[in-house]
C-alpha cells in the first residue's frame, strides 16, 4: 500500500497564533484515519493546507505523492473534501450543483455517478430542488455528494456529522464505510469520539497545532486501558487515605483505574475491611474519550510528540 497523504513538518501562523506547529503525519492508502482534537487544535487548518485553501509557512503536503502546491491540479483531483461549514450556492438546484462541480474537475458526462451518489445519500427526491429550500441535514448530504463527484481516492470529512440527526449519521457512515471498503482512503475529523472509535483504525490527536498522539485506535485504547471501577460509598470520607489516594472522585463516585479484573476483588475487600459501605458499583471499559482526556491533559503528550 502506498502513501495516500504525507504531511511533513507543516507550520502555519496566523498573526500571533501558531495554528500548526510542525505537524508530521503519514496516512496509508485505504486507511480510515481519525483526526481528533479540541476546538482550535488545528484540525481544520491542517485539512485546509491539504486542500490548498491555506498555504503553510513551512513544510510540505502531498496527496498520493503529488505536492499540493507544486502539482496542485493532480493533488486536488485526488482529493474530495467535505467542509465543516454548511455552505451552499443558493442559485442552483442539487443536480445543477453536482453537475457544475463535476465540470470543475473536468468531468462532463457524470449523470450516472451523480444518480448513484444521490441514491446513496437519499437525495434522489430532492435532485431538482433549489439548495435554498433544503434542510440543514439535506444540505450536509449535498456537501458530501459534491466532494465525491470526481470519485476521489482520498476523502476528507471535516466534522461531517455536526448537527446531523441520527438516521443521517448512520446512513452516512454506512456509505463512507462502503467507500473505504472499496479502497478509498478516508480521513475524518469529529467531535464524536465514539464515532472515531468505531470507524477509525488509526487516530491522530492534535493539541495546539501539534500531534500529541498517533497510533492505532486499538493500541491507544490498550495503553490507557484497563477498566474503571466506580464506587459510591455511604461513608466514603471514612476510608483510609491509602485507598482514597488511588481514586479520583467524580460526581460522588470514587473511580479506580485497574489494569485487569484480578484487581477488583482485592480492592473491594480492602474497602470492606476498612468499614466502607458500598451503595453502588459500576465497571466500565476505557474508551477513546478517556484516552482523549488523558492525552489532552498532557499525560504522555511529550513522548508522543517526539515520536511522531
Amino acid at each position: 500500500m502506498g502513501v495516500a497523504v504525507s504531511i511533513q513538518q507543516v507550520t502555519k501562523t496566523f498573526g500571533n497564533l501558531k495554528a500548526l506547529d510542525g505537524v508530521c503525519l503519514e496516512i496509508a492508502e485505504g486507511e480510515f484515519f481519525g483526526l481528533l482534537g479540541p476546538n482550535g487544535a488545528g484540525k481544520t487548518t491542517l485539512i485546509s493546507c491539504l486542500a490548498g485553501l491555506v498555504r503553510p509557512d513551512t513544510g510540505r503536503l502531498k496527496v498520493m505523492d503529488f505536492d499540493v502546491q507544486g502539482d496542485y491540479r493532480e493533488a486536488r483531483r485526488l482529493l474530495g473534501i467535505v467542509p465543516q461549514e454548511l455552505v451552499f450556492d443558493p442559485f442552483f438546484t442539487v443536480r445543477e450543483t453536482l453537475r457544475i462541480q463535476s465540470g470543475y474537475f473536468g468531468i462532463r458526462q457524470n449523470d450516472d455517478w451523480i444518480d448513484e451518489i444521490l441514491d446513496n445519500l437519499d437525495l434522489t427526491a430532492k435532485a431538482d430542488t433549489n439548495m435554498r429550500r433544503l434542510s440543514g441535514g439535506m444540505k450536509r448530504r449535498v456537501l458530501v455528494a459534491q466532494a465525491l463527484v470526481h470519485k476521489p481516492p482520498v476523502i476528507v470529512l471535516d466534522e461531517p456529522t455536526a448537527g446531523v440527526d441520527v438516521e443521517l449519521r448512520q446512513g452516512l457512515w454506512q456509505f463512507v464505510r462502503r467507500l473505504n471498503n472499496e479502497g478509498h482512503t478516508v480521513i475524518l475529523t469529529t467531535h464524536y469520539l465514539e464515532e472515531a472509535e468505531t470507524l477509525c483504525a488509526r487516530v491522530a490527536m492534535l493539541k495546539l497545532g501539534c500531534v500529541v498522539a498517533l497510533d492505532s485506535t486499538r493500541n491507544l485504547l490498550d495503553r490507557y486501558s484497563g477498566h474503571t471501577l466506580s464506587l459510591r460509598l455511604a461513608n466514603g470520607d471514612d476510608l483510609p487515605l491509602s485507598i482514597r489516594q488511588q481514586a479520583s472522585l467524580i460526581g460522588g463516585y470514587l473511580n479506580f483505574h485497574l489494569a485487569s479484573y484480578d484487581e477488583v476483588e482485592p480492592l473491594l475487600a480492602a474497602v470492606r475491611q476498612s468499614g466502607g459501605v458500598i451503595q453502588d458499583i459500576r465497571m466500565s471499559e476505557a474508551d477513546l474519550e478517556d484516552v482523549f482526556i488523558d492525552v489532552m491533559r498532557g499525560r504522555d503528550g511529550a513522548r508522543e510528540r517526539a515520536g511522531s
Partner: peptide, 10 residues
C-alpha cells in the same frame, strides 16, 4: 463561504 467550491477543484 461557497467560494470554496471553486477553490477546491483544479
Amino acid at each position: 463561504g461557497s467560494i470554496i467550491f471553486v477553490l477546491l477543484p483544479p
